[in-house]
């Protein structure tokens, strides 16, 4: 006769292993006194172009480095390095998101001491990266106008987890027939407290408001860290 199975209580979060590594990453970043931004979007929303515009604005003002996540190629890291900014490329092969362990491994070869800001450009994907904490202090989601106004409602988890939503490619709003007010309302529905900036990374319209906000966030954090040291 088959013995009755024994039930063992587990009560464990499935992502616990990633979470533990994310906590260790976050502690390391806190010790170094730097802000870490996890930049996420669908493929082609303009993350790298936005990053180029942001980095140009910070030239000579802040010490910034970038970790790039892509399935294949180091093209994005090359674009960042061309601006004279340190960059490290993680190629995930077929994995559709970055996880905390990939960041921990990257940090072994890519020291972050002396930085003010580390930007992690995640794999272009609005689904998977939402589940994986990297240890970041700021989650920024880019949504391009050309993707249509309903994107936030279709991918609510990703938009809900964002601290900041950047509406990019506003220069294409008329051509795409997209009402920016409707898009912003849809972002608010799934994330009533997000900070929203509308801009065009290509033309530079609206970029200042975003880079000033980020610079202020970084400096406030740096001052807080210095005060507590």
């Amino acid at each position: 006769m088959q013995p009755a199975p024994e039930r063992i209580s587990v009560q464990a979060n499935v992502l616990n292993a990633n979470q533990q590594t994310a906590i260790a990453n976050r502690e390391l970043f806190a010790r170094e006194g730097l802000i870490v931004m996890n930049l996420m979007s669908a493929p082609g929303a303009g993350k790298t172009t936005l990053l180029e515009g942001t980095l140009k604005a910070f030239r000579g003002q802040m010490r910034v480095a970038v970790i790039e996540g892509d399935l294949q190629t180091d093209l994005d890291a090359q674009r960042i390095k061309a601006l004279g900014v340190r960059a490290h490329q993680i190629t995930t092969g077929t994995v559709c998101h970055l996880d905390a362990r990939m960041i921990a491994r990257a940090l072994e070869a890519f020291p972050v001491s002396g930085l003010d800001l580390l930007i992690i450009e995640n794999v272009g994907n609005l689904i998977c990266p939402a589940s994986f904490d990297l240890g970041e202090s700021l989650r920024v989601v880019v949504c391009s106008v050309a993707e249509g106004p309903e994107k936030p409602k279709k991918y609510p988890v990703m938009f809900n987890k964002a601290n900041v939503v950047l509406v990019n490619k506003i220069d294409l709003a008329d051509a795409s027939g997209v009402d920016l007010t409707e898009l912003e309302r849809n972002i608010r529905e799934v994330n009533p407290t997000a900070t929203i900036f509308s801009l065009s990374a290509r033309t530079g319209e609206g970029l200042d408001a975003w880079t000033n906000w980020l610079q202020n966030a970084v400096q406030t954090r740096v001052q807080t860290a210095l005060a507590s040291a």
């Binding site: 024994e6 209580s9 587990v10 499935v14 009533p192």
Partner: peptide, 20 residues
């Protein structure tokens, strides 16, 4: 007013059943 998420974000193993 903004709503607070009470449940719906769970991803956890409650228990396992085993042959000892």
């Amino acid at each position: 007013f903004p709503l607070e998420i009470i449940s719906g974000e769970e991803l956890e193993i409650e228990y396992i059943e085993v042959d000892s």
